[in-house]
């Protein structure tokens, strides 16, 4: 919706953008510059300075300490993301193309699960995992994220499939395709962009999640990266270069996903809001 901007207003806009850029970049600057400092150089007084002798010491220590947790996060995030995307796709198909009585009401019931504070299910959930012997394991976290991911993935796919004309499905069923075939043969092949959006969204959310991670896994060797990062600060003297390097390591996978697939990321954000 570009309106023609005059020269002065253009300059004003740039000044505003630059001020905001400083605000958005500030934490990145502190994180990056601190993480490349050797331990001797990390002090409060020089916090805003660039490293004099850049060093990878912080990253090495952080990687050594967090490497098992990084692995845990991948073991957790990848299956949970894929499974919940699959479920969301099938559900989205059913709710958009196979509407039945009360399907909207039932969908709303499912959707409510996306907004609840997870604290309100936390205690029974922990007890459930304790009884089933899954407590403290990565599979427990995967189950958790898959189930509580159903509402959002269903919503995203439902919105996505609703853009696809019903005639496509109807034409297929006239040709004798059953429901399953019309899903796998017609809808699934054109769902790739939808999957990308949902996978990015779920990957970021599950990777970054903290409450379930910290309450369902208490054994540090099983904990995902977010919890390990907080614990890094909890022990003895805080080595800020290690801490900041650790923060970068924890953020790296989602940042990479974001940089490569940023366009889809924006779309995912929008699909995540209930209705535009």
């Amino acid at each position: 919706m570009a309106e023609k901007a005059s020269k002065t207003s253009t300059i004003v806009y740039y000044i505003i953008l630059i001020i905001f850029t400083i605000f958005y970049i500030l934490p990145f600057y502190v994180t990056l510059s601190t993480s490349f400092k050797p331990f001797e150089e990390v002090s409060i007084a020089t916090m805003w300075n660039l490293p004099k002798k850049p060093s990878l010491q912080g990253f090495k220590t952080a990687y050594r300490k967090l490497q098992p947790n990084l692995k845990n996060s991948f073991y957790l995030t990848i299956p949970a993301t894929l499974i919940s995307a699959m479920i969301g796709s099938i559900n989205g198909f059913a709710l958009s193309k196979l509407k039945f009585r009360y399907s909207n009401f039932l969908f709303a019931l499912i959707l409510f699960g996306m907004f609840i504070p997870y604290q309100s299910v936390l205690f029974p959930l922990i007890q459930f995992f304790q009884k089933t012997g899954l407590y403290g394991t990565i599979p427990a976290l995967i189950i958790t994220h898959v189930i509580y991911g159903i509402p959002i993935t269903t919503l995203m796919f439902k919105n996505y499939y609703e853009e696809i004309p019903d005639e496509l499905i109807e034409a297929a069923s006239v040709d004798g395709a059953n429901v399953w075939q019309s899903y796998t043969k017609i809808l699934l092949p054109i769902s790739i962009p939808g999957f990308v959006v949902v996978i990015i969204w779920q990957f970021t959310n599950i990777w970054n999640e903290f409450l379930f991670a910290v309450t369902i896994t208490s054994d540090p060797t099983k904990q995902p990266i977010t919890v390990a990062l907080v614990n890094l600060a909890g022990s003895q003297v805080v080595q800020w270069n290690v801490q900041m390097a650790g923060a970068l390591l924890a953020a790296l996978p989602t940042l990479i996903v974001y940089i490569i697939l940023g366009r889809y990321f924006v779309r995912g954000l929008l699909a995540g809001s209930v209705k535009g």
């Binding site: 403290g136 208490s218 054994d219 540090p220 919890v227 390990a228 614990n231 909890g234 022990s235």
Partner: peptide, 12 residues
């Protein structure tokens, strides 16, 4: 069990 000055260990 490391972390949180024993709080993690107590939970486990």
């Amino acid at each position: 069990v490391a972390g949180g000055a024993g709080t993690n260990a107590k939970a486990v």
